[in-house]
């Protein structure tokens, strides 16, 4: 397309300038702007509002179980989104659950990235038996459907917040490692790497100064595509009762616990369901746009 040729032909500009224009290009498209706005609201709710919830999210009031959302005060207080089976305020739990779900994703993605990036760069650059062994491990891991692997790891590690982060990092790093390794393998042969070697640069220096900056945009794109995947996996595991354990709420767990209420109280699973869809939608909109701007070659590549 004509647009992309123009971008490539653009003269090299100062670094900060380039960053500003990348950000502008992200926000210029409607999908990028909507995604960014949606995400800003959700982050504000998850990491701001969740600390000043209207009620204590754990406070039970068995006098008003499964109260529907309403503006009218019941039992001495307004429960905007109603109450759950134990009379706990759904809005308060939703905000805290949002914080937990976002927090898990924002912990898992950087950790998987760091692990996959480190392993991929070193094995791709060095080669040898370690490369062969680790890549066979990556192949094997990518041969098990991700959720099935996660379930098997949960069976060993157990459930809970830290365990779930570990499970999702274990399931997440091979996707990065495979892509980074392929790039490092190609970059090793490029002129600038050979030149750096010729003037006596150490391997560590070449990796840090020449390989890393060149794989970073790709990794950033993979990371943004990985975020919604992690959100869904955590929610799925918590939904099944294999993830975040009560009393700590998470969005998936709230849906799971409301599963049996579909006949009496359809709004109970619907409220966290809508929120989780919005979270994934925001990450998808923004992720697609970031990919198109930063690394159009990855278009069509599925999630990690």
């Amino acid at each position: 397309m004509a647009g992309s040729t123009l971008v490539f032909a653009a003269p090299h500009r100062a670094r900060s300038d380039g960053r500003a224009s990348t950000l502008l290009r992200l926000l210029r498209s409607p999908s990028g702007a909507v995604g960014a706005a949606l995400l800003a609201v959700l982050l504000a709710a998850g990491f701001g509002a969740s600390f000043v919830t209207p009620y204590d999210p754990a406070a039970q009031n068995l006098g008003i179980p499964v109260h529907p959302p309403s503006l009218v005060p019941v039992a001495g207080g307004v429960h905007l989104l109603g109450t759950d089976q134990l009379g706990r305020d759904v809005l308060s739990r939703l905000l805290v659950g949002l914080r937990i779900s976002l927090g898990v994703a924002l912990a898992v993605v950087p950790l998987s990235t760091a692990l996959g990036l480190g392993i991929g760069m070193v094995t791709g650059y060095r080669g040898g038996w370690l490369d062969v062994a680790l890549m066979r491990l990556v192949d094997a891991q990518l041969s098990v459907p991700t959720l099935l692997l996660a379930v098997a790891v949960v069976a060993v590690l157990g459930t809970g917040l830290l365990q779930i982060i570990a499970v999702l990092v274990i399931a997440g790093w091979p996707g990065y490692a495979r892509v980074v390794r392929a790039e490092a393998l190609a970059l090793r042969e490029r002129e600038f790497a050979a030149a750096a070697r010729a003037v006596g640069a150490s391997d560590a220096r070449i990796l840090a100064r020449h390989v890393l900056p060149n794989v970073l945009p790709t990794v950033l794109v993979l990371g943004t595509l990985h975020l919604p995947v992690v959100i869904v996996f955590e929610a799925a595991l918590s939904f099944l009762g294999l993830g975040i354990q009560p009393p700590t709420p998470s969005l998936g767990q709230m849906i799971g616990q409301a599963q049996d209420l579909v006949w009496q109280a359809w709004w109970m699973p619907t409220i966290p369901g809508v929120v989780i869809t919005l979270v994934v939608l925001a990450f998808n909109l923004l992720g697609d746009r970031i990919r198109d701007v930063l690394d159009p070659r990855l278009r069509g590549l599925g999630p990690v």
Partner: peptide, 14 residues
């Protein structure tokens, strides 16, 4: 886009 953003367990309950 909505279809790819809706987790299966939520679509199922819906």
């Amino acid at each position: 886009l909505l279809g790819t953003s809706m987790p299966s367990f939520w679509l199922g309950l819906l």
